[in-house]
Design a binder for these strands. Structure first.
Lengths: 129, 129
DNA sequence: CGCCAAAATGAAAATGATTGTCAAAATCCC
DNA sequence: GGGATTTTGACAATCATTTTCATTTTGGCG
């Protein structure tokens, strides 16, 4: 059934930013869930295929997942320090990508856009400590 | 010295689209070059660090490299069929990313933008064969 | 030229995420 | 209940990339 898959989805919902499959697995085990790593991977893939979660690749090639608030196409603004993520819609970017593509005779345009930065909390000078 | 690194760079220049480290290695060995896989990886990284080549990740997590025509910041329009790559400047996207970031209080904005599509040659109905 | 130190090289082992395998367990259909 | 089907998960296998480490090359210097 989808019991395990839902459990994975729930774990993801409770997380603030993007989490790797290994993270999700570790987290679930911490909370006493009886689940295997293989199943977590499968659940995550199924969820991603069904558009239930978003996937992106970190710089070191790890896939990270996040349960997103909306089904609509959107991008992410991710804090490179704490992982805090904001979903952003970017009609301007969509149009730009389409335009750039068709200008060069390309069709079936898709694009990947991710924005990274340091969020306000993290960019505050660390006065404490 | 930089002999090997230059050889790697040259191999990349001769390639049309993005190539993986393994590709470059195989290609060089084909042409009789005496070089190790480790060295190819190191050369590619050094080149990338120095901004001499561009890197991006394929969907299956492989790093691919390309010797780019310009040093300036730019993005790529890549044919998902044949790998043919066009370099595109996107001032609009740069501004958009900055704006989105600062709107949410993020600083030190960076972004990744890649556009994929099917180029005109590849989208022609395959009449032959 | 010979010699030492630092950097470069590469073969092989290590790493680490992800995927495949396959038998056991859960679930479904009747 | 009983058998077919799907799901699960421990473990092995994959595969790109990194590390390790001993050897080679290079550069400076007398």
């Amino acid at each position: 059934m989808t019991t395990r898959r839902d459990a994975v989805h729930d774990t993801l919902r409770k997380s603030e930013g993007f989490r790797s499959a290994q993270d999700v697995y570790a987290e679930m085990r911490l909370h006493g869930a009886k689940i295997g790593l293989t199943t977590v991977y499968r659940a995550l893939q199924a969820l991603a295929d069904g558009g239930k979660v978003d996937v992106l690749r970190t710089d070191d090639g790890e896939s990270v997942y996040r349960a997103c608030a909306t089904d609509a196409h959107h991008h992410h603004l991710v804090c490179r320090r704490c992982g805090h993520t904001v979903e952003v819609a970017g009609p301007a970017v969509e149009r730009w990508a389409e335009m750039v593509g068709s200008e060069h005779g390309f069709t079936e345009i898709t694009h990947t856009v991710e924005v990274f930065g340091t969020c306000s909390s993290c960019s505050m000078p660390a006065r404490i400590g």
